[in-house]
């Protein structure tokens, strides 16, 4: 038996909040002295953000029940966004 819609939404919220707390830890964990550019933190921040946006789109906006075309469109958009952000960070 599958979980109820309410429970699924609650799990989505728990996941999103957990990822946000992880981002908090990631953003605040740095050595003494001024902040320095950190490609690992940048890539991590972009990656977890895209995961969060996808959870919001699929679970909260209910795109997982939407026509396949919409899911392809949103996933393609997120993939292009990650590529554009990482390329800008790496090559700008």
């Amino acid at each position: 038996m599958g979980i109820s819609a309410q429970a699924r939404l609650a799990l989505g919220w728990l996941l999103l909040t957990g990822i946000t707390l992880f981002a908090w830890w990631m953003g605040s964990s740095h050595g003494p002295g001024p902040l320095r550019p950190d490609p690992a933190v940048a890539a991590g921040a972009i990656a977890i953000t895209v995961v969060k946006v996808r959870v919001i789109i699929m679970e909260f906006m209910d795109a997982r029940h939407a026509p396949r075309r919409l899911r392809y469109l949103t996933d393609s958009f997120l993939a292009l966004f990650v590529i554009a952000m990482l390329a800008t960070y790496r090559f700008a």
Partner: peptide, 29 residues
Amino acid sequence: FLASQAHLDLTLGVVNTIILLTSSWSIAR
């Protein structure tokens, strides 16, 4: 950018993120 970012309150940013995620959860409900 990083010297300026250091002046932002990360904790307030996290609190606001959780508030908005919670509001998103409640509108989904």
